[in-house]
């Protein structure tokens, strides 16, 4: 599969996801729902690598993306004073998208997958709340939390359909991207989701940069040496990794 076709697949899925949650009032006040194309790319890794992909896999991939869209909607609710109409509808947008993921999988009789994903979502919210409670967490614990928050439902989806070999690359890539984005935004004094909430990250910026480099080196090495990934997909992943180059992002800042 060449790069143009990969892009086409990602765009097709994005369109489909947005169609599933089209709701005029929500769109008018909260805008187009967040569908992260990079996350979608990693959700679709097996398809983009030419694996057999049936209707259920397609439906489940859309459902998993809806989970992230729902969670992203709730991340946009302000900590204080969310009484504007747009903010009120932001609350409902997340609930609505979440209901649609459940409905989609229920119609496809995927009760066991619903069970796994809902357990995953509960776990994601538990780890998100770590950035709000008063307990002390280590640097490593928080990195693990971020990885879980950013990738757990995709991991469950890939495992469910026995695409185990893609899990590691997906998890590392998702973690790498978010850490780079967070650090770049933090350096620009922009709002960040994790670093602004964590003293330990703020005090250990050098460790964070080293961690990013470590993940990036491991990911690039694994992708290059992978026997599973076909050449065009390898290139597409490596391009994505370099497009999110930390140096470049910090320089742009």
């Amino acid at each position: 599969m060449n790069e143009a076709l990969m892009t086409q697949h990602v765009e097709h899925y994005k369109k489909n996801i947005l169609m599933q949650i089209q709701q005029n009032t929500l769109q008018k006040y909260t805008g187009i729902p967040v569908v992260d194309e990079n996350r979608l790319f990693y959700t679709l890794l097996p398809l983009l690598n030419g694996e057999e992909w049936n209707k259920s896999e397609k439906i489940s991939a859309i459902a998993v993306s809806l989970i992230f869209t729902a969670l992203a909607a709730h991340d946009l609710v302000k900590e204080e004073n969310a009484s504007s109409k747009a903010q009120q509808l932001q609350v409902l947008a997340g609930d609505y998208y979440s209901g649609r993921y459940y409905q989609l999988l229920a119609k496809d009789s995927k009760i066991d997958l619903i069970q796994q994903l809902s357990s995953g979502v509960a776990s994601v919210t538990e780890h998100k709340s770590r950035f709000y409670d008063l307990q002390e967490y280590t640097f490593e614990q928080l990195i693990q939390s971020i990885q879980l928050i950013e990738s757990k439902p995709i991991e469950q989806f890939l495992e469910y359909y026995s695409f185990h070999e893609y899990v590691f690359i997906m998890k590392e890539a998702m973690l790498l991207e978010v850490l780079k984005k967070e650090l770049a935004s933090f350096e620009k004094n922009e709002r960040t989701f994790y670093i602004s909430k964590s003293k330990i990250f703020q005090l250990n910026k050098v460790s964070l940069i080293l961690e990013i480099e470590k993940i990036e080196n491991a990911l690039v090495r694994d992708v290059r040496s992978s026997e599973l990934l076909k050449e065009p997909l390898k290139q597409a992943i490596l391009e994505r990794v370099s497009a999110f180059s930390l140096e470049k992002q910090l320089r742009e800042g």
């Binding site: 609710v77 900590e79 979502v121 509960a122 919210t125 709340s129 709000y132």
Partner: peptide, 18 residues
């Protein structure tokens, strides 16, 4: 705060479905 309320609600919804 609102964010904690969002996570609490999301957690309860997820547990309900599970």
């Amino acid at each position: 705060n609102n964010r904690v309320a969002m996570y609490t609600g999301d957690f309860l919804f997820a547990r309900a479905i599970e």
